[in-house]
C-alpha cells in the first residue's frame, strides 16, 4: 500500500511529539483526579452533614458543574476570571483548576451516594456500640462506602482523561491537537494520514484508560471475597 499515510507518524519528531502531547494529557488528568478526589471526599462527607444551608450550597456547586459545560468553565476561567483578577494563569493551570473542581463536585456526589446508601442499621449498630461520629465513619461507613464508590470513580476518571481534549481551545497543546497539527501539515501530501494519526491517538487513550478499568475490576473482585 504505497503512500498509505502511516509513515507520517514517524516523520521528523512526530512520534515524540505525540507522546509528549500524551504526557500533557496524563499530567492534567492525573493532577486533577488527585486534587478532585481529596476535595471530593471532603465534600461528600459534608453533604451528609445535617445542615440544610450547607447541603444547599454544595448542591448548587455540583449543579453548576453539571449544568454549565466544562468548555464554558474553561473559557470563563481562562479569558474572564484570570484577567479580571490580574493574574496570568497559564492554560494548563486553568485546565487543572477546572478539572479538579469538576472532579471534586462529581466525586462528592459519588461519596454522598455511597454513604447514604449504607443501610440504616449499620449506623444504629455503630451507635449502639458507643462509637463516636468520627469512629463511625472511620471504621464502619467509609470502608464499606469505598467499595460502592469505586465503579463510579473510575468511570469519572476515564471521563476526565477524555474530556481533557477540550483544553486545546484554551491553547494547551495536548495529544489531540498535536495530531491535528500533523494531519493538517500533510493534508496534500498524505491525505489519509488522519486515519493513522487518529488511530494512533485511539490506542494512546486506550493505553491510559484500560489499566484504570482493569484496576477497578481487580479491587471489586478482591473485595467480593
Amino acid at each position: 500500500m504505497p503512500n498509505s499515510g502511516i509513515e507520517v507518524l514517524f516523520e521528523g519528531s512526530n512520534f515524540e511529539r505525540l507522546l509528549g502531547g500524551l504526557l500533557v494529557t496524563i499530567e492534567i488528568s492525573f493532577v486533577s483526579i488527585v486534587i478532585g478526589t481529596v476535595l471530593g471526599v471532603l465534600m461528600g462527607l459534608l453533604r451528609t452533614v445535617n445542615s440544610r444551608p450547607l447541603r444547599l450550597v454544595l448542591r448548587l456547586y455540583l449543579e453548576a458543574f453539571r449544568i454549565i459545560p466544562i468548555l464554558v468553565w474553561l473559557y470563563v476561567v481562562h479569558f474572564s476570571f484570570s484577567p479580571m483578577l490580574h493574574i496570568d494563569i497559564s492554560g494548563g493551570a486553568t485546565a487543572i483548576l477546572v478539572f479538579s473542581l469538576w472532579g471534586a463536585a462529581e466525586i462528592g456526589d459519588i461519596v454522598r451516594g455511597a454513604l447514604e446508601s449504607m443501610p440504616k442499621h449499620q449506623v444504629e449498630s455503630g451507635h449502639a456500640l458507643g462509637l463516636s461520629r468520627g469512629q463511625l465513619y472511620r471504621y464502619i461507613l467509609i470502608p464499606q462506602a469505598v467499595r460502592r464508590m469505586l465503579p463510579g470513580s473510575i468511570n469519572l476518571a476515564t471521563r476526565i482523561v477524555k474530556t481533557t481534549s477540550l483544553v486545546v481551545l484554551i491553547g494547551v497543546i495536548e495529544v489531540v491537537k498535536i495530531g491535528q497539527q500533523i494531519i493538517e501539515l500533510g493534508v496534500i501530501k498524505a491525505p489519509n494520514a488522519s486515519f493513522w494519526v487518529y488511530g494512533f491517538i485511539f490506542i494512546l487513550y486506550f493505553i491510559v484508560c484500560y489499566p484504570l478499568s482493569r484496576l477497578s475490576r481487580r479491587f471489586e473482585r478482591k473485595w467480593q471475597n
Partner: peptide
C-alpha cells in the same frame, strides 16, 4: 498551529 501555509507546526 494547523492552517498551512499560513500558520502551522
Amino acid at each position: 498551529a494547523d492552517k498551512p501555509p499560513f500558520g502551522y507546526v
